[in-house]
Write a protein that binds this DNA or RNA. Structure first.
Lengths: 156, 156
DNA sequence: GCAAATTATTTCAAGCTTAAAGTTTTATAT
DNA sequence: ATATAAAACTTTAAGCTTGAAATAATTTGC
């Protein structure tokens, strides 16, 4: 007598599993919506937006490895995205005098201008997409996710 | 006098933006970890796991379009993943008599066995990764995400 | 000084992903 | 009946993603 594949999941561990599934679905739902809007309204992509957002916060520039660490993606991945942004004139690489392995990556003037416009729209979209989440819940959720992050970073 | 790019974000709408960023980072962090474990321990991938998980819940099989809707990915995407799973003998396609456009996709016997093993490990990983989230927070978070989902599905 | 280890980045192959266009089959409206 | 539309998939091209291997520059340990 074996449990079928379809009993309502319950028991220890199931609460965490359910939480993970909800979390993943929520973020994929929102991500898909943002991706579509970025394409339709600005003919760009989420990875490009992510890179530009990171660089916008660092006017002095970032190393490739900083970018990949910050964005939680692989090194090789960032290379390709930055290559495309460079070819579009939105981002520039500058070799450094000190260490010739590294290059400082930063937004160009065009990049800053372009990102500013897209970011404003983006913030509006998020307000729209998450509008039904009460201010209170938003802050509570954020708090929980922040403490998740702290625990994660402090893990052995 | 323009606000610099680095003031702590604040004001209306910023709470939602911050929530979204936290949500995205949490799910990417966990996703990256799961991806790595799936590769190392079972030489498989998250998309393959996702498809198999969906099929495991539907012993009678699913249509390709059901799969893509459920997983929130495009049609063509599912085609490729299922192709690979079929070539590995974990999944089977069966043409239906009724409608020759469609094919019922289901796990093979091997697929069921294989998924059972991986899913057990997966649940353990999640328990581990989210272990620091209290039972209470887990349930609260799940509740908020569930209501987000309802609002989303009920949007105009 | 110099070999060995480390660090920063790029390249590569395989696979994932999307949006758009194409194919085949079924349903609908004359 | 038969054109037209709709539905279920697949194919395609471009881009994203990873992990591993390759390059090049710097640092470390004798």
């Amino acid at each position: 007598m074996v449990a079928g594949p379809l009993p309502a999941p319950s028991g220890p561990g199931k609460d965490r599993l359910r939480l993970w599934i909800r979390l993943l679905r929520a973020s994929r739902t929102i991500e898909a919506d943002l991706r579509e809007r970025l394409k339709k309204d600005f003919n760009t992509t989420l990875p490009r937006f992510d890179v530009m957002a990171a660089l916008y916060r660092a006017p002095e520039g970032m190393l490739m490895s900083d970018l990949s660490r910050f964005l939680l993606v692989s090194n090789g991945n960032v290379t390709g995205i930055v290559d495309r942004l460079v070819s579009e004139g939105l981002v520039a690489r500058a070799r450094r005098n000190g260490d010739r392995r590294t290059s400082m990556v930063r937004l160009t003037e065009d990049g800053v201008k372009s990102f500013g416009i897209i970011a404003a729209a983006h913030e509006g979209w998020i307000g729209e997409l998450l509008g039904k989440v009460s201010e209170d819940d938003a802050r509570r959720l954020t708090g929980m996710l922040t403490s998740f992050r702290s625990n994660w970073e402090g893990r052995e």
